[in-house]
């Protein structure tokens, strides 16, 4: 295993502008291998926008993103997934009319290497690879304790398990870095407690995790380090206990509520 201090992700001076609005402004952060790093901040602070730039949905106006030492800003989402970074979504985006296992298999899309000829003529290569991937998909579901849903369609699953299927799909891409966008949203305390130990277990399996989360209990319990973003800017960083007592953070969370709402609207427009 690599040492803990080796950065897997490094973001420098990341900025994006929508029209005149700086949604993310000069943000720097770093994630080391095997860490759980959380990005927190009030609604509309620009957290999801950061994820969108990391994964290639938006092109940053400025700044650099290094993933495993390589610059990835400007690359297509496909290439970023291939490089080993996968995400989940704030509002679950599973493929509703595909079965759970098909959702997971879709996650393996980029590293399923048979071509059109293989699939039409069911060549030995196709049979071998398809069997391998199906087995791997079943195993991932088993690992996440979701294998009983293998044949089901995602919409028939409880909410918490749908989130887990999204994580399963992200894992299936062979990603080393998982970006989880509010995984605990809409969960009851028990479910989010379960999620907490589940995310920890992911780290022991060798995954590195970046988390966007509102559930402060979860964040404080799980994170190795925390970055706080407000109004598109990084206002604090540090260990959970440092963040909990940081004055700027408390102001950002408790004060200036009207302004946040406005920003939220603009960002989602």
């Amino acid at each position: 295993m690599e040492t803990k201090q080796e950065p897997i992700l490094e973001v420098k001076n990341l900025s994006i502008q929508f029209g005149g609005l700086k949604a993310v402004d000069d943000v720097n952060f770093k994630v080391n291998r095997g860490e759980i790093v959380s990005i927190i901040g009030p609604n509309g602070a620009g957290k999801t926008t950061v994820f969108n730039m990391l994964t290639g949905v938006y092109q940053p106006t400025n700044g650099q993103i290094f993933f495993k030492g390589e610059e990835i800003q400007g690359k297509t989402p496909q290439n970023i997934v291939k490089a080993g970074m996968a995400r989940t979504f704030q509002n679950i985006r599973l493929f509703c009319d595909m079965r759970v296992i098909q959702n997971v298999l879709l996650g393996m899309h980029t590293n399923t290497d048979y071509n059109f000829f293989d699939l039409v003529f069911h060549t030995p290569k196709y049979r071998k690879l398809e069997r391998e991937k199906q087995q791997k998909a079943v195993d991932i579901l088993k690992f996440l304790d979701l294998d009983r849903y293998l044949h089901d369609y995602p919409t028939n699953l409880p909410y918490g398990d749908q989130r887990k299927v999204e994580i399963a799909r992200a894992i299936a891409t062979d990603a080393q870095l998982l970006l989880l966008d509010e995984p605990a949203a809409g969960m009851n305390p028990e479910e989010s407690e379960e999620l907490l130990s589940f995310i920890r277990s992911l780290v022991t399996k060798g995954f590195t995790i970046v988390l966007i989360e509102h559930d402060m209990n979860l964040v404080m319990n799980i994170s190795d380090r925390i970055y706080v973003i407000d109004h598109g800017r990084k206002i604090a960083e540090g260990l959970p206990q440092e963040i909990a007592t940081n004055k700027d953070v408390i102001v950002a969370y408790l004060g200036e509520e009207e302004e946040e709402d406005q920003l939220e609207e603009v960002e989602h427009a």
Binding site: F18, T48, F51, N52, V57, Y58, F89, Q90, H268
Partner: peptide
């Protein structure tokens, strides 16, 4: 279109 603006997709 000539007068259209680029649409930013929500995620």
């Amino acid at each position: 279109g000539l007068f259209g603006k680029k649409v930013i997709e929500k995620v």
